[in-house]
Design a protein around this nucleic acid. Structure first.
Length: 575
DNA sequence: GCCGTTTTCGGCCCGACTGTTTTCAGTCG
């Protein structure tokens, strides 16, 4: 029994306990235990066998007993009881914003509501308003939100889909009958959310590969595999990568006969054996990565056939990329290898899970040349935001630790933008910092005029270097703040303030469209992880994907600068 | 449910917002 299975069972108990109205701290205890199991370097089954489970912080007697039960019998009685008490449809109800676990259970117990459809019906018939704590307005809000959720296509973040896609492709490549396997579709284009996972497979033995596919464990996402003979691989990968708009743009630009009559090139051109791990080497220079990017793309030959330069998947959205390719004006897209550091991470000083020293060491091990520690400011109490005194101590600790050769620790803060647009620390304290990231965390529902003025005020603060996750959106959960983005860009360009592209897959904020507008307006960008743990430092590629979709080049991005250049930029006088 | 202890209970990150109240509960982040 692997740790992930155990962690999932504990997470499920926590989720279900929320519905049965248990003490929130008990729920949290299960979540923490699940998290601890997930991060455990050794096998939890071994610990259970040795009776050493309770030595793991977060696991006490009760949870240890449940883990032992799971390891021995493959089930947890307590979990199965909980499942009986809370039908799956009731869990679904909380996808409706504004409707939490308590209300979901109330609806189930009093009205028998056990699905989104039943919820909508009950709301439409006016049966919600008479329940305690609800009323006509809440009923109307739920009806509207439920309809919206039901209409919303079932999509997941690229952060969920991409690792699954890569695992599926790895699984496929382990089979001798698979000559090539590549991810296609929206995952390959690095769209921020995806509905399903397209995979293209070259094989001479489709039956054997299909049998291999059938042995995949159940996946949280539908996988859509296409099996083709090797000579059709390139064209199929190209077509399945899309997007539809890109293919249409190409069809409009290329003589149709040329596309239709494209001869299947010799199989030898596409079927290249995989050099194990060659594509994943972390020690590749930026120059190399741009060269290999094209040579590794099986569908590059399609563009060659059309007489076009290679168009990277992230650009294939029908946003003028074909015209740009014909004019020789495709951007030299930024790559992960271009990035020199991360300018927005948290530590245990506020709401991170790793210490300052651990984050610094992990960043250095990743090959970063610099790392800016930006913990939360005082107003964000939930995240243990730092008071001015604590921030001064934190700065001192950062300075003490900043000793290493070839690696710089920068003292920063993620400072809350208050409701009126002023910042959460006084200017003289901000002046002591190397990097100031200013972010919206509250009052995200202000009207556009007010929200825009608020952000403009922060941008004009002479100490602010970066606006963190500018729209404050959380994909699929929280709508972006209403902003007049043209005015934001104008102010950023004038003051030399950078906009962040948060690499956190739940944010990816700026969105691709806005990143492109920013770059066209000459506004600097920065790709940060906003990491709250060592593991999250590795999320940069998601931000890079988003930046590439925004046509972003290395010179647009301040953390693609070497340290001396970055320090110069940070020291710039703000206009 | 876990943890730590000035041990066997009491705290565990907390404030804003909303719609429902008539002093608060639920939700969210």
């Amino acid at each position: 029994m692997d740790n992930l299975t155990v962690a999932e069972a504990l997470y499920e108990i926590a989720d279900l306990l929320e519905f049965t109205g248990e003490d929130p701290f008990k729920v949290r205890a299960y979540r923490k235990a699940a998290e601890a199991v997930g991060l455990l370097p050794e096998q939890v089954a071994d610990l259970a066998g040795a009776g050493r489970l309770t030595r793991v912080p977060g696991i006490g007697k009760a949870i240890a007993a449940k883990i032992a039960e799971l390891v021995e019998t493959g089930r947890i009685g307590y979990l199965e009881e909980l499942r009986q008490a809370v039908p799956p449809g009731v869990l679904d109800l909380t996808r409706v914003p504004g409707l939490g676990a308590r209300t979901a259970m109330l609806l189930y117990r009093r009205l028998g509501v056990d699905s989104l459809e039943a919820l909508e019906l009950a709301a439409r018939e006016g049966r919600l308003r008479d329940l305690p704590g609800l009323g006509p307005r809440k009923e109307a809000a739920i009806l509207e939100a439920a309809a919206r959720v039901r209409r919303r296509p079932d999509r997941v973040s690229i952060g969920v889909a991409a690792p699954i896609a890569e695992a599926v492709v790895r699984h496929l490549r382990s089979h001798p009958a698979v000559l090539r396997a590549e991810v296609a579709g929206s995952v390959r284009r690095r769209q921020e959310t995806v509905a399903d996972i397209d995979v293209v497979i070259a094989t001479r033995d489709p039956a054997a590969v299909q049998a291999h596919l059938d042995r995949l464990p159940p996946l949280p996402r539908p996988v859509d595999p296409v099996l083709v003979p090797p000579e059709a691989f390139a064209l199929t990968l190209f077509e399945r990568t899309g997007s539809a708009a890109h293919l249409a743009e190409l069809a409009g630009a290329a003589p149709p006969a040329e596309l239709a009559g494209m001869a299947p090139p010799a199989a030898a051109e596409y079927v290249r054996p995989y050099a194990a791990g060659a594509a994943d080497s972390p020690h590749r220079s930026a120059q190399d990565s741009r060269v290999t990017e094209e040579s590794e793309a099986a569908d590059a030959v399609v563009y060659r056939t059309l007489g076009l330069p290679y168009i990277p998947p992230e650009l294939r959205e029908g946003g003028g990329e074909v015209a740009a390719a014909r004019a020789g004006r495709l951007p030299r897209l930024i790559t992960v290898a271009d990035l020199r550091g991360d300018l927005h991470v948290h530590t245990t000083a506020s709401d991170g899970t790793a210490t300052l020293a651990e984050m610094a060491e992990a960043a250095r091990a990743l090959g970063h040349r610099y790392l800016a520690i930006c913990d939360h400011s005082q107003s964000l109490a939930i995240a243990r935001g730092l008071s001015p005194e604590r921030l001064r101590q934190h700065i001192a600790a950062i300075r003490r630790l900043d000793q290493g050769e070839g690696f710089r620790l920068l003292a920063g803060a993620e400072v809350d933008i208050l409701r009126d647009g002023t910042l959460d620390y006084p200017d003289e304290l901000l002046a002591e910092l190397d990097v100031v990231v200013a972010s919206l965390h509250s009052h995200l529902g202000l009207p556009e005029a007010e929200q825009t003025e608020r952000l403009l005020r922060a941008i004009h603060n002479p100490h602010v270097d970066i606006i963190g996750h500018p729209f404050g959106r959380v994909i699929g959960r929280r709508e972006p703040a209403a902003l007049d983005f043209d005015r934001i860009l104008e102010a950023c360009a004038r003051t030399g303030t950078a906009l962040e592209i948060s690499a956190s897959p739940s944010r990816l904020d700026l969105p691709d469209r806005h990143a492109r507008l920013a770059r066209e307006a000459g506004v600097k960008l920065v790709i940060n992880t906003d990491a709250h743990s060592v593991r999250e430092l590795e999320l940069l590629p998601y931000g890079v994907g988003q930046a590439r979709r925004g046509w972003v080049e290395p010179q647009d991005v301040i953390n693609a600068m070497d340290l001396p250049e970055l320090l110069d930029w940070l020291a710039r006088p703000k206009g």
